[in-house]
Design a binder for these strands. Structure first.
Lengths: 203, 203
DNA sequence: CATGGGTGTGACCGGTCGGTAACGTTCATC
DNA sequence: GATGAACGTTACCGACCGGTCACACCCATG
């Protein structure tokens, strides 16, 4: 503790730079929860990963559960933003929008082999009274409704059932990646969706 | 430690009676893992639930991970036995077999709102090197293959894809129960399956 | 320069966890 | 009745956990 007090400022990319500690904590928490599970990581490790300490973490978030809910809410917001971006790319052809949605989910499936953070959290927290469950449930139903709107616009024979079916396929694919590996049923998620959409195409 | 050494033998139903301690431990472990998650329950509580103690638990199973694998293997065997039973009930009409499979899964969905123990374990244990992952993966792929055999017999247009699609629907339904509640997409699992099967019916 | 809010530091608390050691007990077998 | 395997009991270990306390620090504002 004497000379050269800031050894590798070059490696301090994007961490204590301009981003306020609260956001750093949420980002680190999301990352570590994803890697190790909620019960598998301690608050101290989260604080260190965020280049801060446990005390400031507890000043921003009253408890680990609160921090968890905050990270889940960030995940839902990010997912919502991706939806918005996707819809901006939508062509006017409503049928093409559904195919675009499928492609989008295929990409996420390949790029995020850890599955859905929200679903994983809900599975890990068996206690359905946990506040995180409300966040997850609200988000999942919202996602389904947005998808149903697309199905409706595409003029399928039974838009609600199509949305539910595609939702189940997606949820199943994102967990199958974890249970059966990348060579499991999730590998054919795209074809499953296409066959389903074709089956529901009106007249 | 003096008189009345066996206070309530009447309540000792099915526990220390004739069932050997090893099976009792596995059963209790399966039950408690299901209720509280793997990381959410301690070995001591498992031993007590099995009407035994930690020491004998560790004499039968070298570690908590070993015990977990043993319980997961029991789950796979039980599921395999249910499959066998289901196939014995199969009518000769191959198409009816698929409908029977759907009904069977609908029942499980309603009776076991906790989802699939294997999938839940895989989600909770993020570390893919954990030995439990091998048990889960092998089982999931075996289940898919058995389903594919039924699809093949039913003479659908693309039996493999149908099996993968139904697998995804099932996996999705079993996790959606936990993420979206019983009023989520899993509510229409039966109709999703029926529509899918209809779409794949050959000519 | 004084103030005060946001932040860092380290020690600490009570509790729980997975796992082990040592010793006692039961009970069937020879 | 001796033997030995299987099981029970208690205490203990080291590690880690979520959460708190007291105190020092930095820095912008007045």
């Amino acid at each position: 503790m004497s000379s050269s007090e800031f050894p590798d400022k070059a490696a301090d990319l994007s961490s204590p730079a301009a981003i306020p500690p609260r956001e750093r904590i949420v980002s680190s928490a999301a990352d570590l929860f994803r890697k190790h599970g909620i019960r598998g990581i301690g608050v101290e490790a989260i604080a260190e990963a965020a280049q801060t300490n446990k005390m400031t973490l507890y000043r921003k978030f009253g408890s680990k559960d609160e921090l968890l809910c905050a990270t889940l809410r960030q995940v839902t917001q990010r997912a919502g933003a991706l939806w918005d971006e996707l819809e901006r790319d939508f062509s006017e052809d409503a049928a093409a929008q559904l195919k675009r949605w499928v492609e989008f989910q295929v990409e996420r499936l390949e790029q995020e082999p850890g599955g859905c953070d929200l679903a994983n959290a809900a599975v890990e927290l068996r206690d359905s009274d946990h506040p995180a469950h409300a966040v997850v449930q609200e988000f999942k139903n919202a996602q389904r409704d947005r998808l149903a709107a697309v199905c409706e616009a595409a003029g399928s024979s039974d838009p609600q059932l199509l949305a539910d079916t595609l939702s189940l396929l997606l949820e199943g694919a994102r967990v199958s990646v974890q249970t059966s590996g990348p060579e499991g049923s999730s590998r054919r998620f795209r074809e499953s969706c296409e066959a389903t959409i074709a089956a529901f195409s009106s007249k």
